[in-house]
Amino acid sequence: MSQIQNVIEAQALTKIFGDFKAVNAISFDVKAGEIFGFLGANGAGKTTAIKMLIGLSRPSEGEATVAGYDVYQQTEQIKENIGYMSQKFSLYEDLTVRENINFYGGIYGLSRRQIRQKTSEIIEQLGLENHARKLVGSLPLGWKQRLAFAVAGVHDPKIIFLDEPTGGVDPATRRQFWEMLYAAADRGVTIFVTTHYMDEAEYCDRISIMVAGRIDALGSPRELKQQFSANTMDEVFLKLVRD
């Protein structure tokens, strides 16, 4: 892609549960190959927003396209082009590393040869050579998370959505995880990641900050820090929440 394209576009996207606006008319776009951070406190509406984009939840109002497909009409096509890593760590703990990769490869319709190739790629990339036959449940959380990310990309999707992928691990382990995100972004994969760790926010190309269902700030970390005359993303966030 020579010219920068938008792979996600949202216009006044809204989700209403009863009379509660979980997501209130958010608008943003994400460019191809970008790492887009989707920030907000717990309960700000991040997960609901992500579910509308990946076809798990139908928007109440507004427009959005993902990989060029409409979120109302073309969820099937969207699903073929995205990978997803959910908030709960989501591989099968009672299956081995290899079996998990095989299964997810299988449901995305990869051929046996492709699956074999992907499996050895992932195992090599994560340095899991000695653990391929171990049950995933026996691995440390940081490894599981990196494996889950690799599995989310097993079918080479254009966009990978990550919903709080690094919960519960220390900053050093988070840093290792982010190395993987950079590597994927370098290959041209767009990364859409929600988080509430501000150190992670600094790693993103651009971020949006959600407060109570609305996007209150959008831009690169540097731009946001200037805009809010803050030194760190933490301060930006605090200023936003206090207003």
């Binding site: 990946i54 076809g55 798990l56 099937e76 699903k79 073929e80 995205i82 997803y84 959910s86 908030q87 709960k88 760590f89 989501s90 591989l91 099968y92 703990e93 997810y104 449901i107 995305y108 989310a152």
Partner: peptide
């Protein structure tokens, strides 16, 4: 409960 259902549902199946 374990969240794997979401992963199945975001697949094109």
């Amino acid at each position: 409960e374990t969240g794997t259902m979401d992963l199945l549902l975001v697949s094109p199946l």
